[in-house]
Write a protein that binds this DNA or RNA. Structure first.
Length: 778
RNA sequence: GCCGAAGUGGCGGAACGGUAGACGCGGCAGUCUCAAAAACUGUUGGGGGGCAACCCCCGUGUCGGUUCGAGUCCGACCUUCGGCACCA
């Protein structure tokens, strides 16, 4: 994932980027054609906020940050292909973001509707969801955020809800799939119609969604969201004052307050009734804020006996509770809480006696037969609200014409440039609204006077397709080159934080599927293999500027070198777990790199006199191949910490060998050469320098990755543990080829073992090849 | 509340159901030095016994279980960190 242009890179960014660079280098040495690009997610609120507080233009702030970040990323020793860099705030990029918008619009996947957006009453501005922090308050001033209804642009992500649930064929962490599944929130159930006693606002019924149609005979009251369109029509005159007051009170609630658990249920009776489609019963209609206007139909059939929330509501307002699903072991006692499990239907007319599952099906069948309802599936996922009443984003390329309505800007007229001189202080309206030169235009269809759309796009739109642009950043007449997209994509390995499960990763998947359906790409999923690295923490929390616990890489690079910083970040622990930054750990890697330096740069003088020479030659070869194997398999598995540990072990071994001087000069050089190749991805600077000093030709990074010989990597002599009743009593050195009988014999012959088994009855001897002999006695 | 991940020496962490603590930091002792730093060498889980080479016991969050054998598998719980959370 490319970074947001927030300014200085801190160690947390390096933690994300350095291991992925090591992997890319490793794969390149293995002979793959590796596309390892970098770019910048450059539109968005932080730039605008920084611009406002510093009195500079967001572009200037962003460009400065990009320059600095590019410098830092280069100092890391990364192999990024900078010729492919994409910067989302440049017209050559956002031109295509706009192009996609128009394509989505033409495909019916972009639409305009009224929606409630986050609104900060103090800053007088709309906030993005990610700017609503800490229990629903404004990121900048801490004021509780409210909702405000505005005409908004949406992308129809819900059209792909079902397909987005399917991660088949993807190598993604289970956790990420679960997070996305929960986010999408599929519910199966039934829709059914409750009739009104009198026609209201042209309607004579209200639809509800329920996952439990089997409980329909237990409905004792009926709930509407306070925002439901029929509320005013169903309010009787004598109840009006109270209802109005309640609705007004709900409107004041912040979203956080409204969704908070554990608050007492609130609501008011409207004075009207609806008719249960199955029992024909007349039930009172209430409104309550726990019914959400945006989920289902905004109306709920309340079954207090079998729903915890409805039970609480009934208890609060003394409404009747009627059991209709009997628990399996029920003996007629009263409920003290809602029973939400399966059971046998009771008090349910002709359905009584059925199991809840049978009743579910039978009631759905009846509803469908009579046209009073149907089986249905709903999702928690909502359409993606992409308009932002902010300046620093890609302008939505639409024109409002009094005669023709909403008209897309013709593709050949793109990009719709963001005017550099607009006033962007927050006023509650889109800043572009006040930029006459931008707003006033002519209609592409009738050429009459028209106004441009003044909202800009959510930055997540920009980041939903950048990986496509990496394949062909020079393409002028299209967002990407089809042949090159076919060659490179989908992405083989995508790394980034897990926090994007419900955002970027879902949006990018939606985009890819939409593009596929438009015939623009031939694959359905953008990222085949996803790996989530952990988070680096410092002083008890995630590093961030606002916390003031940021570790800057630059000074460490100056003191210890980039290779040591990269190495330390990998050595902290498994990449997916993250870890605590600790200065003292860096010293270990730095010392090791220095030892490698002197090991390689000081001369080796073989001493052929030693009798052990032949033996040591063999051992060196074994150690070398064992190390190559370990480093290779660890890099495949993202185990950078143990990969480095095995390289350290190998250098420690070589240091001893160098003192003994028992191997030939040629063998020594072979070992050093391979050591440098194994080191190259992790410590690219040091490896390159030592490569040159050992009389090799430039560059170590274009060499082939060393191969290992399985036979040589295998141990010749092994240690077998001897246990008595599972307790370790002795160890024996034996050839790796030892057989079962011989191993058992050696074990039983051991003096130490004898002391433990003398005089006891031997009941069993278990042999685990190459590991253990366990002698069982009683 | 629900879902996920994790709990191992003074610290970061290793460990296909089979020798717990690889590798590194820190500590201790030594070499070098007038001295210190750096570097290098050795040592380092806890407790007990022995002049000694060594020997014994205890140890992977807690309590149970499976197994010849459990850090690893199963069940219940505790703690920490992430994510979701009145979704009918």
């Amino acid at each position: 994932m490319f970074p947001y242009t927030s300014g200085d890179l801190h160690i947390g960014h390096w933690y994300i980027k350095a291991p992925s660079d090591v992997r890319a280098r490793f794969k390149r040495m293995q002979g793959y054609n590796v596309l390892h690009p970098m770019g910048f997610d450059a539109f968005g609120l932080p730039a605008e906020n920084a611009a406002i507080s510093r009195g500079i233009h967001p572009y200037e702030w962003t460009a400065r940050n990009i320059d600095n970040m590019r410098r830092q990323l280069k100092s890391m020793g990364s192999m990024y292909d900078w010729s492919r860099e994409v910067v989302t705030c440049l017209p050559e990029y956002y031109r295509w973001t706009q192009w996609f918008f128009i394509r989505l619009y033409n495909a019916g996947l972009a639409y305009r509707a009224e929606a409630a957006v986050n609104w900060c009453p103090r800053c007088q501005t709309v906030l993005a969801n990610e700017q609503v922090v800490d229990e629903g308050s404004c990121d900048r001033c801490g004021t509780p955020v409210t909702k405000k209804a505005l005409e908004q642009w949406f992308f129809k992500t819900t059209r792909y809800a079902e397909e987005l649930l399917d991660h088949g064929g993807l190598n993604w962490p289970e956790r990420m799939r679960t997070m996305q599944r929960n986010w999408i929130g599929k519910s199966e159930g039934a829709e059914m119609c409750f009739s009104l006693e009198h026609e209201r606002a042209g309607q004579n019924e209200i639809r509800v969604f329920t996952t439990r149609p089997d409980t329909v005979f237990g409905v004792t009251f009926f709930l509407l969201a306070p925002e439901h369109l029929l509320v005013s029509h169903l309010t009787t005159p004598e109840r009006k004052a109270e209802v109005d007051e309640y609705v007004a009170w709900c409107r004041q609630q912040t979203e956080y307050e409204r969704l908070a658990l554990g608050r007492e249920k609130t609501g008011v009776f409207l004075g009207s009734y609806v008719i249960n489609p199955l029992s024909g019963e007349r039930v009172p209609v209430w409104i309550t804020d726990y019914v959400l206007p945006t989920y289902g139909t905004g109306a709920v059939m309340a079954v207090p006996a079998h729903d915890e929330r409805d039970y609480e509501f009934a208890a609060r307002f003394s409404l009747p509770v009627r059991m209709v699903i009997a628990p399996p072991d029920w003996s007629g006692e009263e409920l003290t809480e809602a029973y939400t499990g399966e059971g046998t239907m009771v008090n349910s007319g002709s359905f009584s006696g059925l199991t809840s599952e049978q009743g579910y099906q039978a009631i759905c069948d009846l509803l469908e037969r009579e046209g009073r309802g149907k089986r249905t599936v709903i999702y928690r996922l909502r359409d993606w609200l992409i308009s932002r009443q902010r300046y620093w984003g890609a302008p939505i390329p639409m024109v409002h014409c009094q005669r023709c309505g909403i008209v897309p800007v013709p593709e050949e007229d793109l990009p719709v440039l963001l005017p550099p001189d607009a006033e962007f202080r927050p006023t509650g309206e889109s800043p572009l609204e006040h930029c006459a030169a931008f707003v006033n235009t002519s209609c592409p269809e009738c050429a009459g006077p028209a106004r441009r759309e003044t909202d800009t796009m959510d930055t997540f739109v920009c980041s939903s397709w950048y990986f496509l642009r990496y394949t062909s950043p020079d393409t002028q007449d299209a967002p990407f080159d089809e042949d090159r997209v076919r060659y490179w994509l989908p992405v083989d390995l995508y790394t980034g934080g897990a926090e994007h499960a419900g955002l970027h990763l879902l949006y990018a998947r939606f985009f890819t599927k939409a593009l596929r359906d438009m015939g623009l790409v031939s694959f359905s999923e953008p990222f085949r293999h996803l790996f989530n690295q952990g988070t680096i923490v410092y002083g008890g929390g995630k590093m961030s500027k606002s916390r003031g616990n940021v570790i800057a890489p630059d000074e460490y690079v100056a003191e210890y070198g980039a290779d040591a910083v990269r190495g330390y970040l990998m050595f902290i622990g498994p990449w997916e777990l993250g870890g605590e930054w600790n200065d003292s750990g860096l010293i270990g890697i730095s010392r090791w790199l220095n030892r490698v330096w002197s090991l390689v740069t000081t001369e080796y003088h073989p001493n052929r006199q030693s009798a052990a020479a032949g033996e040591d030659e063999r051992e060196l070869l074994h150690m070398l191949h064992k190390t190559i194997k370990k480093v290779t398999t660890d890099l495949e598995k993202f185990r950078f910490n143990t990969m480095l540990a095995s390289l350290m072990e190998f250098t420690n071994y070589l240091s001893k060998l160098k003192e003994n001087r028992t191997v030939s000069d040629a063998s020594w050089r072979r070992a050093i050469t391979d050591l440098l190749l194994l080191l190259a991805p992790s410590a690219p600077h040091l490896a390159e320098e030592l490569w040159e000093r050992t009389a090799h030709t430039y560059s170590v990074h274009t060499q082939a990755w060393p191969e290992y010989d399985e036979d040589l990597a295998r141990e010749e002599e092994i240690t077998i543990a001897i246990q008595v009743n599972g307790k370790l009593r002795d160890k024996i050195q034996v050839p790796a080829s030892i057989g079962e009988a011989e191993a058992k014999e050696l074990a039983l012959g051991s003096e130490r073992v004898k002391a433990h088994i003398d005089g006891k009855k031997l009941t069993n001897v278990i042999y685990i090849p190459r590991r253990v002999v366990n002698i069982v006695i009683t």
